[in-house]
Nucleic acid binder design. Structure first.
Lengths: 359, 359
DNA sequence: CTGTTAGCGCTTTCAT
DNA sequence: ATGAAAGCGCTAACAG
């Protein structure tokens, strides 16, 4: 009875013991040298123990470990970074930090990075290729060890160029070199899934609200829609395919346009969930019921789609998995390891906005 | 006619000129010393020009600038950080990276940081004090220059303790020292606003879905609700005050509980928007209309609240401003400057889920 | 105004 | 197995 919202497992983590007093001594941070003195060994020995670089006698090891604990020492990351040429930081480029779409993916990345010692710096490209390039440069200048690019607007060549500096993994594109990896979901398949679902319910006049122009994901979804139509022997009617941009407002406008120009349609397939929300509102404003009068389907399965009124039928994208997989792949690239990725398939999530066409 | 969704201005930034070829030479990054050699000056001179630390003759300055441009030099942040003891990084602690609530605030922070040279590392506390402490320690170990804590679960004392290491600004608490600043919205006022709105519409039986136990924001909202009731001479009825936890599911469960135990109420005030979404769905499932049968009001004004069906009446929290102000304040603290903050007041946003009680 | 000289805190040969 | 010494790339006295 409860709607199943998409979301990664949120660990109700129960970190045990933590003594606030421990590290909260506000004196200047201890250095490795001080630890060495305290333990009566050389700095190198401390370093060796810290990094497991070489064998150290149990006696000294014990002394050093003691000193470390006693002095509450932690190595200075800047110094390590400077020395090793690795910052233990990765850069993440999203398009909009305040978008549920990216959030889920970030969550997956977060999970994968947790406990690896890597931290991440997140920047926004704002769907703008020039800004995106600018931000990637910034990350590179900051010496990140690798980059995850989510739904970038830049060309594959640019990605390849950047990958010469640091390994990079990108979603939404097919790519595979030693230092760059791109993988994408099968948008066309997903769109066919959605369209076929509608067709199976008896719909023949299915409106489509597109994504932004020149956006690969958007284009492929449109193409999947067309294919499914063709396969079912339904003529493609450009009059009921209207422009959107993946945001709520565009869905609202598009639907209102459809309605006001008196197009004939019994179902709407919005290129993403956000857009479907807007469509839903437009329908509501006109007093048109969903799904009784019009069926509605989205794409993405954002967490909130399980709580719309009524809950939205949509195509689930494994956002969180994608994030996790991207991060793991990047870690491999950074280590020079081979990567092989496979992401879970898209699946149709039938909720309550689609209904068999009566009669 | 279009709903107004809360959101910061999303700059459709038009960064001009960018020559990909410029920085994409994958050779090892240039160092300041090489620049100095190329320009025929000493490293210090280059450093001076870079930092504006001292006067330099036009001639040498020109030579250095030329060399910098020619060699496409950018100083190594790790080296700078090690030397200056400043990493130009700030740490942000959210509770959930994938929550629209935090997103808007992050967006504000992002805006404030943009162009300052500071980058941010975001970590999640997952509403868990122990984990939060752990994460803050992590940030401190990473040598962030300051911390922004959003809706932390830790005590004020802990914050004060941490602030001895690095400046910290926190939302959701009142605090003001040399190195720590906390500011909060007037939850009680906001809750009164919401409750009064309902009362003015003629409602006398107003159910309330609480936030998580021991959560300051939640407690204060409950208290505001009670106050407004008392002011209107309406008896407080604990039977229609039910537990929630700020998430959709709890709103759904709470409302279902209200309905199944046959409580008498004509309106629901949910302690936050997410919770209101769940309530909305519960009502929908039972075939109860909003706002005709039951009025519903939330708290926060998340961006998506303008697109629910019907659009949600709620109390707007200036999330984005809060983020911006927090970041600016932190920057001031870091510089040792005085800070004075004032955040915009909460305001009632009347949309379409509340209605005058007929009778 | 400018160059020389020490390091920031750590890792890593290179000896022993 | 361990210590001494030489930097990573940059900045900040300190002398001129």
């Amino acid at each position: 009875m409860l709607p199943t919202a998409q979301s990664c497992p949120r660990p109700s983590s129960t970190l045990a013991r933590f003594h606030l007093s421990d590290t909260l001594t506000p004196n200047a941070p201890t250095t490795l040298i001080e630890v060495a003195q305290q333990a009566g060994v050389s700095p190198s020995t401390v370093s060796r123990i810290l990094n497991g670089t070489a064998k150290v006698s149990d006696e000294k090891r014990r002394a050093v470990l003691d000193a470390i604990a006693k002095m509450n020492f932690a190595p200075n990351p800047m110094a390590q970074a400077l020395k090793k040429g690795k910052s233990m930081t990765i850069g993440i480029v999203v398009q909009d930090i305040a978008s549920p779409f990216f959030d889920e993916t970030l969550h997956g990345i977060d999970q994968a990075l947790n406990g690896t010692g890597y931290a991440s710096v997140i920047v926004s490209g704002h769907w703008n290729a020039a800004e995106e390039i600018d931000r990637i440069r910034l990350l590179l200048a900051r010496k990140v060890d690798g980059i995850i690019l989510l739904s970038g607007r830049i060309t594959d060549e640019s990605v390849l160029q950047f990958s010469k500096h640091k390994p990079i993994v990108s979603t939404g594109r097919a790519l595979q070199t030693e230092r760059a990896l791109g993988f994408k979901i099968d948008n066309e398949y997903g769109a066919r899934l959605a369209t076929q679902h509608l067709i199976e319910l008896g719909h023949r006049h299915i409106a489509f609200i597109t994504g932004p122009a020149n956006h690969t994901d958007a284009d492929e979804r449109l193409s999947g829609y067309k294919k499914a139509l063709a396969e079912a022997g339904i003529a493609y009617n450009p009059k009921i395919v209207v422009d959107g941009d993946f945001h709520e407002n565009s869905g609202l406008r598009a639907t209102t346009h459809l309605l006001e120009t008196k197009q004939k349609f019994t179902a709407i397939f919005a290129a993403n969930d956000l857009c479907a929300y807007g469509a839903r509102l437009s329908l509501y404003r006109k007093g048109i019921r969903v799904p009784e009068d019009i069926s509605l389907i989205g794409f993405d399965d954002l967490p909130s789609s399980a709580y719309t009124t009524p809950p939205l039928t949509t195509v689930r994208q494994p956002l969180c998995d994608i994030g996790r997989i991207a991060a793991q792949a990047l870690l491999h690239l950074i280590n020079g390891d081979a990567v092989e990725t496979s992401i879970p398939p898209l699946e149709l999530v039938v909720r309550e906005t689609t209904k068999r066409l009566k009669n």
